[in-house]
């Protein structure tokens, strides 16, 4: 489903300092796989995730999504895939604090042009599926860290995403909540068959995944 071949990515701070974030990275993610990407800080994990999420483009190499070369896609097409097929979960949740949990979860539906009772019901069911049936109308900035992360996961799966990308999803929560969140990811992987790629420092969380990929200094070791 996701095939990355010899990806290179560098960043420049404009002062002749060039940081090689990724160097000749290749990775294949099959349907239904749950993969963890580990490595020290600055190793290029998040950069790899951003490229897979089509939020960034590689300097060289190829990225195929469902067999289609992503570099040939327009920005609108990439956004559409991100809306309908890819769900993204971030370390600091990435929620709109002033909106309630239900509206946050319904955001991808709103962007896709779906509204009304059917859309609201779908968002409700997704929130219930992550165990937040009693927090529908609660503002996101009044939820606990674990609850916010659940809302973020619900938003990621509300469109029946085929790929879920999580960037340090347990980085801001305690160990108990980490377990709960990893249980949720496992449950989603089993029930929906979605491929899940989790970038994490947490080795215990990484152990919960079927495959472990380690990145060091921009290369997969």
């Amino acid at each position: 489903m996701i095939q990355i071949e010899n990806i290179c990515k560098s960043f420049s701070n404009g002062k002749e300092n060039v940081i090689q974030a990724l160097s000749d990275v290749s990775l294949t993610v099959n349907d239904g796989e749950m993969i963890s990407v580990t490595g020290p800080s600055g190793s290029g994990k998040s950069t790899l995730l951003h490229i897979i999420a089509m939020l960034d483009t590689q300097d060289s190499g190829k990225y195929f999504y469902n067999g289609i070369d992503v570099s040939a896609m327009s920005e609108s097409k990439k956004a559409q895939i991100r809306n309908r097929e890819i769900g993204i979960v971030l370390q600091d949740y990435g929620l709109i604090g002033e909106m309630n949990a239900l509206k946050n979860v319904a955001l991808p539906l709103t962007i896709a042009g779906e509204t009304g009772k059917a859309a609201t019901q779908r968002a409700k069911e997704t929130l219930c599926a992550v165990g937040l049936s009693d927090k529908l109308k609660q503002k996101a900035n009044l939820l606990s860290g674990g609850q916010r992360q659940r809302v973020a996961i619900a938003r990621a799966i509300v469109m029946n995403a085929k790929v879920i990308l999580a960037d340090e999803p347990t980085g801001a929560v305690d160990s108990k909540t980490t377990n709960d969140i990893m249980d949720l990811f496992s449950s989603i992987n089993l029930k929906t068959g979605a491929s899940i790629i989790i970038v994490t420092h947490d080795l215990a969380a990484a152990e919960r995944c079927g495959r472990k990929v380690k990145i060091e200094d921009g290369t997969i070791s």
Binding site: A53, E75, S76, A79, I111
Partner: peptide, 16 residues
């Protein structure tokens, strides 16, 4: 910026 970047994450193109 926060809201706009979340919308972009959730699949809204830059043009939109």
């Amino acid at each position: 910026q926060h809201v706009l970047s979340i919308m972009n994450l959730c699949g809204m193109s830059l043009w939109k």
